[in-house]
């Protein structure tokens, strides 16, 4: 895909909303198209986190493995969502497995490169941090809501 289309796609994505030109170009330079087949593992818990993804199509399951239960899906992410923020926060290691549950097409962004540039250019770093903080906030809220287990009957014991 030509660079102009990547630029258009990134520019339209909510994650980059309000990002100024020189930075946007930088992201385009660090971006590439990727595709995962159904069932393919995108990254594993504990691995170094150096890439993040904007999902363009398909569904990704965030999983962890419990010895007696096997893989447990914590959350799924779909079209338009950002996969991964551990690349920006020390110790830069993935916390969960990410697996494509169907064919996934995404834009991969070089997190390691962006980390380096952010150390030099703090304005860039701030723009990135703001956006990732937004993603983290949404995930945290959703996780807390999930914890509340609101659909329990409250009277009978749960299964």
């Amino acid at each position: 895909m030509a660079a102009e289309s990547l630029e258009r796609i990134l520019g339209e994505h909510p994650f980059f909303g309000g990002m100024e030109e020189p930075y946007l170009q930088l992201f385009v330079d660090c971006a590439s198209n990727v595709r995962f087949n159904a069932g393919e593992v995108i990254f594993r818990e504990g691995e170094e986190a150096n890439t993040f993804y904007l999902i363009r199509h398909g569904r990704v399951a965030l999983e962890t493995s419990a010895p007696e239960r096997g893989p447990v899906v914590i959350q799924t992410l779909g079209e338009g969502e950002v996969l991964g923020w551990s690349w920006l926060v020390a110790p830069f290691r993935w916390r969960f497995d990410a697996r494509a549950t169907e064919v996934v097409r995404a834009i991969a962004l070089d997190g390691r490169c962006l980390r380096g540039r952010s150390e030099e250019d703090h304005d860039l770093g701030y723009e990135l941090m703001k956006r990732c903080a937004q993603v983290m906030e949404q995930r945290l809220q959703a996780a807390r809501f999930q914890l509340l287990d609101v659909y329990g009957s409250g009277v009978r014991s749960k299964r």
């Binding site: 914590i74 799924t76 549950t101 949404q138 959703a142 809501f145």
Partner: peptide, 15 residues
């Protein structure tokens, strides 16, 4: 066996 979405219902709203 569930191959659908996992997550709270509010996550369905933004997209």
């Amino acid at each position: 066996g569930w191959r659908g979405n996992v997550g709270v219902v509010t996550t369905l709203i933004p997209p």
